[in-house]
């Protein structure tokens, strides 16, 4: 469905996307994961035909994104991270307007708007102005607007940021349902649990480059045997004192009183870690050990947390 080859985009001297290549198959949900400023939005901007690439090629459904832009645009739907709706229009008027932009009209247009209003649980509120909606309701209409023209592929850019759990659940279920109906999805998110729940494959992007790509098990394998340990301390040791942990752990990040550690064999390493901390006078308040997740992968690959 989507083939990105050596994509390059820069703004002035700043390289936002650096030789990025990935492909998304028909009917797949692909997650693009990375911290803020990693190049996710710049990549989506190019894929949405909002800006031209400075190098590389992108094909959507076999069509070149630059040379056959008009045809490409009818095949993609975008759901921007910020709510992109007209507050002075009702929910239904918004959907009708965006549908008409793609040449939809008549009974088909109205039927599609009603279908989507029902799908996002807002059929009863269709005539109300979007300006009167809560954040979660706006997010749902935001998604519906991107789907009006029945695109083959949709880009969902952080679609669940800052909303209530009910709306989040509804959106995640909607994406799953649309995917089972054949919609291909490119999904960017900060939330690892969402990526793990929805995505068939994931690309991790950092400083404009894809640094890892694969299914969830494949990415966990990248992390190898390392396991994450989270320790919350009282009487936090100095950075010099923490250096004593160096030989025991793979990586260590400190966020206030909270230590995030990666170690190869956590069961063996844990007593040594606790002993070393006790020697510095630190007291353990809370300790948590988990299976390696995407955060672990990112930490392992970059030495930084995704939300840093």
């Amino acid at each position: 469905m989507l083939v990105v080859t050596e994509l390059h985009k820069k703004y002035g001297s700043f390289v936002a996307v650096d030789s990025v290549s990935f492909r998304i198959n028909d009917g797949e949900v692909y997650g693009l994961l990375g911290p803020n400023g990693a190049g996710k939005s710049s990549t989506i901007k190019v894929l949405s035909c909002l800006t031209k690439p400075d190098g590389g090629h992108v094909q959507i459904d076999g069509l070149d994104i630059v040379a056959q832009q008009a045809q490409v645009k009818t095949r993609i739907g975008i759901v921007p991270q910020d709510i992109a709706l007209y507050d002075d229009f009702s929910a239904k008027e918004n959907l009708l307007f965006f549908g008409r932009l793609y040449g939809m009209h008549g009974a088909d247009l109205r039927k599609r708007a009603d279908e989507l209003l029902e799908a996002v649980g807002l059929l009863e509120r269709g005539k109300d102005h979007v300006g009167s909606f809560s954040g979660g309701m706006k997010r749902r209409i935001n998604i519906a607007a991107g789907l009006m023209h029945r695109p083959k592929m949709v880009y969902l850019d952080e679609p669940t940021v800052g909303i209530d759990p009910q709306s989040r659940r509804l959106i995640l279920d909607l994406v799953k349902r649309l995917n089972t109906e054949g919609l291909t999805v490119l999904f960017t998110t900060h939330y690892m649990e969402e990526a793990e729940e929805l995505c068939h494959r994931i690309g991790i992007i950092d400083f404009g480059k894809i640094i890892a790509e694969g299914t969830i098990p494949e990415l966990r394998a990248v992390a190898g045997e390392v396991s994450p340990i989270e320790i919350e301390l009282r009487d936090v040791p100095t950075p010099q004192q923490l250096e004593a942990l160096g030989p025991i752990v793979e990586s260590l990040t400190v966020d206030g009183s909270r230590l995030s550690l990666l170690c190869r064999d956590s069961k063996t390493a844990l007593p040594a870690i606790l002993q070393s901390l006790a020697q510095t006078g630190a007291r353990v308040h809370h300790l948590e050990m988990d299976e390696p997740d995407l955060e672990t992968v990112f930490l392992k690959l970059t030495g930084r947390r995704l939300r840093d």
Binding site: S48, C49, L50, A70, K73, T74, I76, I78, P80, D82, I83, A84, L85, Y86, D87, F98, L101, Y102, G103, A145, G146
Partner: peptide, 13 residues
């Protein structure tokens, strides 16, 4: 400011 510019320009416009 609304962000609708992205929607408009990703449409056939």
């Amino acid at each position: 400011e609304r962000g609708t510019i992205a929607r408009l320009l990703s449409a056939p416009l």
